[in-house]
């Protein structure tokens, strides 16, 4: 069964994601322009883009555990998922800059003064080098350092989720569920054997 799924997936070209995944953004923009996002489309667009960005980041984070624990192989799509996640974070930021805040002097003030913006911005900044090195050339050039660099993903996703937790009013479950899923996906990466070995080495030293 899993074999069949995996071999079916092999027939889907990864470039398809670069075509399909931007479509929601186009749809959101269309809705925003035609009244489909309600009475206040700016915040609604910002929220839709931010939420989809976070979902894509989580999808990217799920690839490895899915393969390791379920044998489902999505590794071919991981780069596209990651780059598309970056696209959505970027559009989310752009919405904030151009449509939401508008005032140039307030943009900088908000980044420094509003912790949830600072945290979101930090998440974005961490994603920039990852997006820039998501190509074959960089993978070859950086060699083993590439894997190390791309561990930044964990930080970026966490910052994105914490940013969400920080911005809601009152006690709300949704952002906490996102954060919980992310922590779960990160916990699945901890390899007890490796940890034990490292611990043993440290105590021996």
């Amino acid at each position: 069964m899993l074999e069949r799924v995996n071999s079916g997936l092999r027939r889907i070209p990864a470039w398809l994601l670069y075509v399909v995944l931007p479509l929601p953004a186009v749809w959101f923009l269309y809705l925003g322009l035609t009244g489909g996002l309600g009475a206040e489309p700016i915040k609604a667009l910002e929220h839709k883009l931010g939420e989809f960005a976070l979902q894509l980041l989580i999808a990217g984070l799920a690839v490895t555990p899915l393969r390791r624990h379920l044998g489902l192989n999505l590794i071919r799509f991981r780069r596209a998922i990651g780059l598309m996640a970056f696209l959505y974070v970027f559009l989310h930021l752009l919405t904030w800059l151009v449509l939401d805040v508008q005032v140039l002097s307030q943009i900088w003030a908000d980044i420094l003064k509003r912790p949830y913006i600072t945290v979101g911005m930090a998440g974005f900044v961490l994603l920039v080098p990852l997006a820039l090195t998501s190509n074959n050339f960089s993978v070859r050039k950086l060699g083993p350092r590439w894997r190390k660099l791309h561990k930044l993903t964990y930080g970026a996703v966490l910052l994105g989720a914490v940013h969400y937790v920080m911005l809601v009013k009152g006690f709300q479950l949704e952002p906490l569920i996102y954060l919980g899923v992310i922590l779960g996906l990160l916990a699945l990466r901890i390899e007890p054997k490796k940890l034990r070995r490292r611990f043993a080495r440290q105590s021996a030293a």
Partner: peptide, 10 residues
């Protein structure tokens, strides 16, 4: 932001 100004409300 006054509600009702659409996507490009000032």
């Amino acid at each position: 932001r006054v509600i009702g100004g659409g996507l490009f409300a000032r």
